[in-house]
């Protein structure tokens, strides 16, 4: 699905990632960890075409990311659900409209029943008409997750999804992501929260990857 082969990425004259290879197989669950600034977010961005590798090959659903047009990248984004730490919503639209945005921009009809079900799944059905600035950090993260999955994507990339929420909410988000994985979705979560990774042990079989010194390592035994 997503393959990185001997990938390097640098900003200007500096190198952030080097010699990095990774394959996200269908239905797999990965954690990506490492210290702040190690390149977790950069690696995530390489996985959904936001950044282009300065060396090596990135293949997204069989397509060479370096050769993709902007329209190709847009099509890829419809197959990859992304959850950011800062969520990124359109503040002038309601929560329900924000969650349905991927359907809107792809010209697909919004089934209000399904949308309501999805909001109920993330526990936000009562806040459907609220605007993003009115939501708490945890509500925003769950809304971002709902938006990421509304197109039923094959891959879900979550970049520090629990960065701004309390422990209880972190576990709730983790549970939602594990449920998605059980439905067959490929999940990659970037986090520096080792407690969260350990908590996942009872729920899912996941691989833990660690970025340090510009390289990607397998972090010990699989959970």
């Amino acid at each position: 699905m997503i393959e990185l082969d001997d990938v390097s990425y640098g900003y200007g004259s500096g190198t952030l990632l080097t010699g990095l290879s990774l394959t996200l197989a269908p239905g797999s669950f990965h954690f990506l960890t490492g210290p702040s600034g190690a390149g977790k977010t950069t690696l995530m961005k390489l996985c959904y075409g936001e950044l282009i590798a300065t060396h090596g090959a990135v293949r997204l659903f069989g397509q060479d990311a370096g050769a993709m047009t902007r329209d190709d990248v847009a099509m890829i984004r419809r197959r990859v659900g992304v959850v950011h730490q800062d969520c990124q919503f359109l503040d002038h639209m309601s929560l329900a409209e924000n969650v349905a945005l991927p359907l809107t921009v792809s010209g697909r009809a919004v089934d209000t029943g399904e949308l309501s079900e999805l909001l109920k799944w993330v526990g936000l059905d009562a806040q459907a008409g609220a605007h993003p600035p009115e939501l708490s950090g945890g509500e925003r993260q769950r809304a971002a997750l709902a938006r990421a999955v509304i197109m039923s994507p094959e891959v879900i990339l979550a970049d520090e999804p629990t960065g701004n929420v309390d422990w209880e909410m972190s576990l709730r988000l983790l549970t939602l992501l594990v449920e998605l994985n059980r439905m067959g979705k490929t999940v990659l979560i970037a986090t520096h929260d080792m407690h969260l990774i350990r908590s996942a042990k009872a729920q899912v079989q996941a691989r833990v990857l660690r970025i340090s010194n510009q390289r990607l390592h397998s972090a010990g035994a699989d959970l």
Partner: peptide
């Protein structure tokens, strides 16, 4: 700019 960033994130094409 933020609107454009969000729209791209959720798969909007430039034409849209």
């Amino acid at each position: 700019a933020q609107v454009i960033r969000v729209l791209r994130l959720v798969g909007a094409r430039d034409a849209y």
